[in-house]
Design a protein around this nucleic acid. Structure first.
Lengths: 117, 117
DNA sequence: CACATCTACAACCATCACGTTGCAGATTAC
DNA sequence: GTAATCTGCAACGTGATGGTTGTAGATGTG
């Protein structure tokens, strides 16, 4: 059973903001394929470790990844449920679109002289 | 037939950035339901018209909406194809996730003593 | 024409985003 | 114990964001 709590607007802001950066999208893809430490991630990018730490922090604040300490390492893993939520938000726009198409088609069928508004 | 050109990383950045604001998501939902002018949109929000103009500009730069001049009005309409692209990008993450699950299941089936890396 | 409306754009300001360097704490290896 | 590694955090600079006000052009209305 899926819980599917409704995220707040601020949470949605954080999710899309987190996805609006190529480095963060790449980090997300990497940790989906395999859980790995922050410093292991940092070696993949041409930027300092604190920079990568911040990116992971943004993803974590958005709920898209989680961290689990293992000795001195901090292993980052994906939270795919959260990604699914983002996708469903976009689905909702498409639902609106299809509803509009349906409404326009219905109006045209009922009254060919109908104007929108 | 769907063309489905691959958007650049910078374009993807713009798309998600545009979606990372509640006002812009609301504007997008409104213009999906009905094409409307910039000033009509502005009356819906507790902010100045130039602020709404900028939001529309961000959505337009991301390709999520388009503008069409009609007399002195500038009517804003949605570009649902672009929204679909964003949703497909998120689908890709879920594909990665399922692939990982499948790989782990296969490894476990082949060799129960297998360790990841 | 005179006037109101819709839009565009520039200038400005406060805040946030994204990178840096430097320092300190915790853990593992030798 | 000593050294190396992994992490966290603060301070800082630069550029982008998100809002404002003000001015001006283009279009429709009386």
């Amino acid at each position: 059973m899926v819980v599917d709590v409704e995220p707040s607007q601020a949470e949605i802001d954080r999710i899309f903001h987190a996805l609006a950066d190529a480095t963060r999208r790449d980090i997300l893809a990497r940790v989906i394929e395999r859980e790995q430490s922050v410093s292991a991630l940092a070696r993949s990018y041409a930027m300092s470790l604190p920079a990568v730490q911040k990116h992971v922090g943004v993803l974590e604040a958005a709920g898209l990844v989680g961290k689990r300490r293992s000795g001195r390492e901090q292993r980052v893993h994906a939270e795919p449920e959260r990604i699914r939520i983002a996708r469903e938000l976009l689905d909702r726009f498409e639902v609106l679109w299809r509803a509009r198409i349906a409404t326009m088609a219905r109006l045209l069928a009922e009254d060919p002289t109908a104007r929108r508004e």
